[in-house]
Computed example of a mutant assay.
Amino acid sequence: MLFLCNLCELKHGSALGLDPWEQGRDTLLALLYDGRPKVYRNNCPHQNVPMQYRKDRFMSPDGSRIICFAHGASFRPDNGLCIDGPCLGQSLTSLSCLVDSEGRVWLES
């Protein structure tokens, strides 16, 4: 397993960019949905580009959708499905995570 963040760092309506493999860029994004962490690859299925326009800016202004700021695609935070934009019907790649008893979020192998 690979440590991602502490659960308390995730806030409803926002997402956190993560670089767990120390590649010098945020390769993942994590968010809180219905009280549970969700983790996705930071890669828009439209043209395989990172989605944020600056650090940790992945969400719509009202916090209800994940947005690819390169192409305007909108994704559901609960399952990563594109609901508007050039990759309609495609999905972000979801990664399995778990929270341990100390509130740490881990990427499952």
Rank of each mutant, 00 (worst) to 15 (best):
L2I: 12
L4Q: 07
C5G: 10
N6Q: 13
L7T: 05
C8S: 15
C8L: 15
K11D: 07
G13V: 08
S14E: 09
S14K: 11
L16K: 08
L18Y: 12
D19H: 04
P20W: 02
W21I: 05
W21D: 11
T27S: 07
L31V: 03
L31M: 06
L32V: 01
Y33E: 03
D34L: 06
D34R: 07
R36L: 11
K38L: 15
V39E: 03
N42A: 15
N42M: 10
N48H: 13
Q52T: 12
Y53I: 10
F58M: 02
F58D: 00
F58W: 07
M59S: 06
S60H: 05
S64V: 08
R65S: 12
R65M: 14
R65T: 12
I67R: 07
F69G: 05
F69M: 07
A70C: 07
H71G: 04
G72K: 14
A73M: 01
A73E: 10
S74W: 09
R76Y: 04
P77E: 00
P77F: 08
D78Q: 08
G80C: 05
G80P: 05
G80N: 02
G80H: 09
L81M: 07
C82P: 01
D84T: 03
D84M: 07
G85I: 05
G85C: 10
C87S: 10
C87V: 13
S91G: 13
L92R: 01
T93W: 03
S94P: 10
L95Q: 14
S96E: 11
S96M: 14
L98Q: 15
V99I: 15
G103M: 13
V105P: 05
